[in-house]
């Protein structure tokens, strides 16, 4: 480390490999405020890195979205397009993002603007890379709010606040009171009809706790914050999920007079192949979409995490392990808990209706009631919502990191300051979401940021890495330090097949969403101002952060960067 104890001005950029080509020391680059050179953080251990990466990938979707989609789209047959998408889209993009991150990290870049400029050799690359900081921070705005619901439900599972005993509703519809509980908590129920919560105070309290926890972890940095969290949360997540999966499989047939209500009937519902579904384009679209979301591709967080690797650290095996761990959590554990338990409690027909109503109904309306049927149900419900919370928070800190890293890298803002800024953004942008949830505010974020934006950014990544960076450099960089030989066929997949696949996804999603999400067909006219506010916020953040990147770009002209051939 002593070799880097020297100073240089802002224009004496390059650092990293040019300054110390064979060094494993990471350098933090000069900033707009003047010279700033210090060793940047690194992961404490490979286990910690894999846990953090797996935590970043494993999210709420593994346990709520996957089983619902599989059951809805052909059961076992859904896994055919799912695994094809994993092979042609998920794993290649995982390797690309890991490699981009490690490459950028050698030059002190821990966020995508700098990484893209390095790869493209153009200032415009930096602007494209700005999407890698604006999209994740927008994503985390709504993700953290949903994450706070899981924290609240873990608490309410212990207190028994939503149980049938606690309900005073006279209703024949079994899920009526848990739905009422959720809608009251969210403030969606009109005033005067609320039973459980008369105000949003509890929701806001848990949301503030979730935002605060995220900020605290980010402020502690990579090793002491994110890695430590992952080392605690991920083993607990797997433990809770395995306990729940075993418990669900042991439920048998709770009521012998209703033999169809069993966990095995639920597993059959998830896994029985319906090959006719493969003829439908939307099934292929849903499978590819799930692979895309479940691996946290296109969020800029994988690059950020990988940028703390050393120059010759392996990306191939570690990236593959991340994807494999995520698939274990999703296909084996995620497919065994929610739907089978729902079928054992409510039967197949009711579960099909629940599944068609969305992941939130499955997770927050059906599951609390299903756990109630089990002995020690409150305990299993607590485990369920705690595992969802762990899955959520290990993902949300990853989504905050690209912006925090950029603020540190470009404007010299310290870890605590960057974390505070992320917190303020989450609060300011999240408040309308909390207040206007019932007006479709979340759906606009989900489409423009969580669906369209991420796929667009991933497409641009592939073009920059596979085509502009240079085909030889791309392949050499991918294989550097690899502990797993990447088959040559992935060269062609990265350059041709994956971009084409993403293009089809983008067109397909746009086509599917033209009416509802883009033209706002079916949305009540009274909701239009809220929906436009949501769109305006998204556009404003993208433009504002693009401007911040541009200003940084102006102070660090591309002419001072090393030429592409040098790196």
């Amino acid at each position: 480390m002593g070799q880097i104890a020297m100073s240089f001005g802002p224009q004496q950029y390059p650092v990293g490999r040019i300054l110390s080509p064979d060094s494993n020391v990471h350098l933090s680059r000069s900033t707009a405020n003047g010279p700033r050179l210090k060793p940047s953080e690194q992961w404490g251990s490979r286990f910690g890195l894999v846990m953090a990466m797996a935590g970043n990938a494993i999210g709420l979707g593994n346990f709520l979205r996957f089983p619902r989609l599989a059951a809805e789209h052909g059961g076992g047959a859904f896994l055919i397009p799912y695994f094809i998408a994993l092979l042609l889209l998920g794993i290649p993009l995982m390797w690309v993002e890991w490699t981009m991150g490690r490459h950028g990290g050698q030059f002190g870049h821990h966020s995508t603007p700098g990484m893209f400029m390095r790869m493209t050799g153009s200032r415009w690359g930096k602007l494209i890379g700005s999407l890698g900081i604006s999209l994740p921070i927008l994503f985390v705005v709504f993700y953290t709010y949903i994450e706070s619901w899981t924290l609240a439900y873990a608490f309410y599972s212990i207190t028994g606040a939503y149980t049938t005993e606690a309900a005073n509703l006279a209703t024949s519809e079994p899920m009526m009171h848990t739905r009422q509980f959720l809608h009251d908590y969210q403030g969606v129920t009109p005033e005067g009809e609320r039973v459980y919560f008369q105000s949003l105070r509890p929701a806001i309290t848990f949301w503030l706790i979730a935002v605060g926890l995220n900020c605290w972890i980010i402020s502690r940095g990579v090793s002491a914050g994110i890695e430590k969290l992952a080392k605690i949360a991920m083993p607990l997540l797997f433990l809770f999920a395995i306990v729940l999966a075993i418990r669900v499989l042991c439920t048998g047939t709770p009521d012998p007079s209703l033999p169809d209500r069993s966990a095995w009937a639920g597993l059959n519902f998830v896994w029985e192949p319906n090959f006719t579904a493969l003829a439908h384009f939307d099934v292929w679209l849903a499978a590819a979409g799930q692979i895309f979301f479940t691996l946290s591709i296109g969020t800029g967080s994988i690059q950020c995490y990988a940028s703390y690797l050393k120059r010759d650290d392996d990306c191939a095996m570690t990236g593959f392990a991340t994807a494999a761990t995520n698939e274990f959590a999703e296909v084996v554990l995620g497919g065994t808990i929610a739907i089978p338990l729902a079928v054992s409690s409510f039967g197949l027909a009711a579960t099909q209706i629940i599944a068609s109503q969305g992941s939130f109904d499955l997770g927050f309306v059906a599951m609390p009631l299903a756990f109630e049927d089990l002995p020690l149900g409150w305990l299993f419900a607590t485990l369920w919502f705690s595992l969802l919370f762990f899955a959520g928070i290990t993902s949300s800190v990853g989504l905050c990191m690209p912006l925090a890293a950029f603020l540190h890298e470009a404007y010299g803002i310290g870890q605590k300051g960057s974390a505070a800024i992320c917190g303020v953004i989450m609060l300011v942008l999240g408040l309308p979401l909390v207040l206007f949830l019932g007006h479709g505010y979340l759906d606009q974020y989900d489409f423009w940021v969580g669906t369209f934006g991420l796929a667009l950014f991933a497409f641009l990544e592939l073009i920059c890495f596979g085509w502009i960076f240079g085909r030889k450099q791309m392949w050499t960089e991918l294989q550097r330090g690899a502990e797993l030989k990447i088959p040559r066929v992935f060269y062609y997949i990265i350059r041709y097949i994956a971009p084409a696949y993403l293009l089809v996804l983008l067109v397909g999603w746009t086509w599917e969403s033209v009416g509802k999400e883009i033209l706002l067909e079916g949305a009540p006219v009274a909701d239009h101002p809220y929906l436009w506010l949501s769109r305006g916020t998204i556009a404003g953040v993208v433009v504002l952060l693009g401007l911040l990147v541009f200003l940084w770009s102006s102070k660090n002209p591309i002419e001072n960067e090393p030429a592409r051939g040098e790196v």
């Binding site: 894999v50 095995w264 896994w271 502990e483």
Partner: peptide
């Protein structure tokens, strides 16, 4: 659940679990 569905499900479980364990153990052994 038919035998075919059961075998299919168990095969996927075994392959996915084994792949995850193999890759994690390879990393930890280095």
């Amino acid at each position: 659940m038919t035998i075919g569905t059961l075998v299919f499900m168990l095969t996927v479980w075994v392959v996915v679990t084994a792949t995850a364990l193999w890759s994690i153990l390879r990393i930890l052994s280095k």
